[in-house]
Nucleic acid binder design. Structure first.
Lengths: 244, 244
DNA sequence: ACCTGAACACCGTTCAAGT
DNA sequence: ACCTGAACACCGTTCAAGT
């Protein structure tokens, strides 16, 4: 009966806030998350959240980071025995699957890894593995970036999603090639997945051509060089000349 | 002096609203666009906007469409004499440039072409040109989608943007490969552009391998088939078996 | 330290009223 | 037809007050 202002045991924790916020985003979308609504879901009043996060945006960032943290990175482990191409493929597939499981948070996620720890762990793992595979550091940076472009783009901007399932919206005189556009809507997921697979294969095929054209690594050893721990750190910032 | 409720000449038009909204988005970002703020910028009161658009979101969609409309599509014109690869390259570059000119509207743009006319014109142009170049219709659909994934992903989710320009945020013990991370921030634009170029080349190289492996088009004519106007329209919906 | 209600300065949208 | 002010049901965030 005692309606206290503060219970002996804290009602909230960052983890619980993030878990409930994530569930709410998944169930009802980003727009459903207001501080008042989220607080109600947690059984507290709105301003209570500000004891644990500085802004609502920080809460959403934490939700996004939790999703990023679920992306498998084990394929970049040197002990996993995956070559760079197989590792990139597995990573992209795992990355896309994680985003597809939580599509509503993707708009937050794509704002960049930011200070989110999981985003940084990903960038570090990709970079390290590509350098170990013989890619110049500047190129390793680009590969991490461009694969992220492709995966997040495929998770966010469904191409087929645009085609509304309403044939009357499309006058064939305006769009001579889109007569079947309304059919595309119902097959959206299939098309997006096929486009993702086609694009990923093309991307990896194209990168393989570039990798094959790489000069032998300095020192001329037979195996792939492994420079964990002793990179000079002076050419991993993009300062290496581009090759075109 | 007469403060009339309605002037003899309308104060607003859809075009003027879109133009001012676009300028506001460019100058101060999406968050700065409230109906009241936009109306003030237009010299009217908030609710006036609802005489021209049904929702605020429709206004933003129109702004996004205006940006889409500025993407060059002339490279897909059969008279332009560009092969499919050169046309895709030029389109991707033009597309990215249009988005880079108006980065703040990109989150709206990536929600899909929707009913926006410009988005549909783009999809139609790419699809038509790819089919003319001999790609099976299902594959032509995928190519449009996957290039859109890559271009929008590169415009939205800057990889380097995540690295805050503050070395203290990165404990080398946590991220062994990111010692120079704070340097990345100031080179963000360069890295993103290089990653885009590297990825685009890889994508096109990879697609060229797939195109070269295509069986000869039915009918066995020497030139690329041109089926403008007489596609059956029954296999452009993704029903063609994938080749993996 | 952690939660509360009240309050501030906003939102998008509706609507009756004006001309 | 097109614009207005008033109003409704919200926002994110701050803050003094409680324990």
């Amino acid at each position: 009966m005692c309606r206290m202002a503060r219970p002996r045991k804290p009602l909230l924790s960052r983890d619980r806030i993030v878990a409930v916020a994530g569930a709410l985003v998944d169930a009802e979308g980003l727009a459903a998350v207001s501080t008042r609504r989220l607080a109600a879901e947690l059984g507290v009043s709105g301003p209570s959240l500000y004891n644990h996060f500085r802004t609502k945006d920080e809460i959403l960032e934490a939700v996004a980071d939790a999703v990023s943290a679920r992306v498998d990175l084990s394929m970049f482990d040197p002990d996993a025995g995956r070559d760079w191409r197989a590792a990139l493929h597995d990573w992209a597939v795992s990355y896309r699957a994680a985003l597809a499981d939580h599509p509503n948070i993707v708009p937050v996620l794509v704002r960049g890894p930011g200070r989110r720890p999981a985003g940084l762990r990903v960038a570090d793992a990709v970079f390290g593995a590509m350098v170990r595979a013989g890619w110049p550091p500047a190129q390793a940076t680009r590969i991490g970036a461009l694969l992220r472009f492709f995966v997040t783009g495929s998770a966010l901007g469904s191409f087929a999603a645009g085609f509304v399932d309403d044939a009357s919206a499309y006058d064939p005189a305006d769009y001579p090639h889109l007569g079947q556009a309304h059919l595309l809507a119902e097959r959206q997921e299939r098309i997006d997945r096929d486009a993702f697979e086609t694009g990923l294969r093309a991307l990896l095929d194209g990168l393989a051509l570039q990798h094959a054209a790489l000069p032998d690594p300095a020192g001329g050893g037979p195996g792939p060089r492994d420079n964990r721990g002793d990179r000079g750190g002076r050419d991993d910032d993009g300062s290496v000349a581009t090759e075109r």
